[in-house]
Design a protein around this nucleic acid. Structure first.
Length: 120
DNA sequence: TACTTGACCGTAT
DNA sequence: CATACGGCCAAGT
């Protein structure tokens, strides 16, 4: 369990803020988070940082997925199961470790998800 | 210093 | 759907 903390760089603080800003019931990709943090093209930095977030730091890390909608961690791993559990807990649909970004992505139209309208 | 890794991404085939 | 490729770059060897 990670408990130690190093001073956060500006980039890290921006990334944390971008992740914290994802509304419950929504998800965002690593790339999208990087862009929103003012670091376009640096998705890997987001992933690397999330892998080092201390367990005692409150952050909706589970709302961050790959651009494909897939959960980034190895299927079946502890983190994977935890992520699925938390996402479902707030109403996000997860099928085979994947979330339909067309309905739950930051820019998705929630009404379509609630009403199940065709075209999505 | 040089090389490898990795919770990634977009495009091409 | 899968594989390949170049881009990204902080950390670890």
């Amino acid at each position: 369990m990670i408990t130690s903390r190093e001073p956060l760089t500006d980039a890290q603080q921006h990334i944390y803020s971008a992740i914290a800003a994802i509304p419950p019931g929504r998800v965002a990709s690593y790339g999208a988070i990087a862009a929103r943090a003012g670091l376009p093209g640096r998705a890997r930095l987001v992933g690397r940082l999330l892998g080092e977030v201390p367990d005692d730091v409150e952050l909706p890390w589970f709302r961050v997925l790959r651009a494909s909608g897939h959960i980034a961690m190895p299927p079946g791993s502890r983190g994977f199961r935890e992520q699925v559990r938390r996402l479902k807990a707030e109403g996000v649909e997860v099928v085979n470790g994947r979330v339909p970004l067309s309905r739950f992505g930051l820019d998705a139209n929630i009404d379509r998800a609630l009403w199940g309208m065709p075209g999505g």
